[in-house]
């Protein structure tokens, strides 16, 4: 059984078909990339998995459980964490606080206990902070620990967002264009991190990315989308040489 299975998902906005009868599955432990021209429906797939959009038809299952039964905020409980294309951080909080929000799905204490700050809350806080410090070490975020997000450069925010997703100890990590807007060096770092996330932490990664260098460098399988439908699926090299994919990118008539 695959970790994530999407079967015949279709989503329409008014008359526009954003995702058209799409099926694919992500195996545990792999890095799976979705590529495609702008407007192909890549981010829409993520928003379907996050339950921000309700599919018109089709099924989405994670580890055998039907995702469509869940509210958007209950998706994280299963161990699915994500980043956003246009960074969505908590701007008026520090890096540390942002990462700690990533721990929210592990909250075990209630409001009254927290107001009294009982020993149990303290013990839980220690656990949360230990987990977050591991992420800070892993992503080299120490210099920014207590900085407000609002004052940080773009590249660092991108890393903080990755860190926030990692802090939740996910089983599946959704990365929406992790390298967009990053410099060559930063992209290189991102590549190593994705490798380590898979190999050291054993987290399955599903990512949307335009940078083909990064895609072919880290991913095991690639799915090419156009107009919300599957064009090709397979190893990075196969997909890149697929005539339909080249046509979609360069326009028909080329090749």
């Amino acid at each position: 059984m695959s970790l994530l299975e999407i079967n015949n998902a279709t989503l329409k906005f008014g008359g526009v078909v954003a995702v058209n009868d799409l099926s694919f599955s992500v195996e545990e432990g792999e890095v799976y990339a979705i590529v495609g021209p702008n407007g192909a429906g890549k981010s829409t797939v993520f928003n379907l998995i996050s339950r921000f959009y309700e599919p018109f038809s089709g099924q989405i299952a994670f580890d055998g459980q039907n995702l469509l039964d869940r509210r958007a905020d209950a998706v994280a409980d299963l161990g699915i964490a994500r980043t956003f294309q246009n960074i969505e951080l908590f701007d008026h909080a520090t890096v540390l606080q942002n990462l700690l929000v990533g721990r929210h799905r592990h909250r075990r204490t209630n409001m009254i206990e927290e107001m009294l700050f009982t020993p149990r809350v303290r013990r839980e806080e220690h656990k949360h902070r230990e987990a977050v410090e591991r992420v800070i070490d892993f992503l080299d975020l120490q210099p920014y620990r207590n900085k407000m997000i609002a004052g940080l450069p773009y590249g660092v925010r991108k890393v903080v967002e990755l860190g926030r997703a990692l802090s939740s100890d996910p089983r599946l990590l959704l990365l929406d264009e992790p390298a967009s807007g990053l410099s060559v060096e930063e992209t290189q770092d991102m590549r190593w991190w994705i490798d380590d996330i898979r190999k050291q932490m054993g987290i399955t990664v599903l990512m949307v990315e335009h940078d083909m260098g990064l895609v072919s460098g880290v991913s095991d399988r690639v799915l090419a989308l156009a107009d919300g439908a599957k064009l090709a699926e397979g190893a990075p090299a196969e997909v890149q040489s697929d005539p339909a994919v080249i046509a979609a990118y360069l326009g028909t008539g080329a090749v």
Partner: peptide
Amino acid sequence: APLGRAFAAVRDSEVSATAMG
């Protein structure tokens, strides 16, 4: 504590707060 951080999360970005559970 977690609830206080959830408050700030709701204030700054409802979408990503939801995604974080």
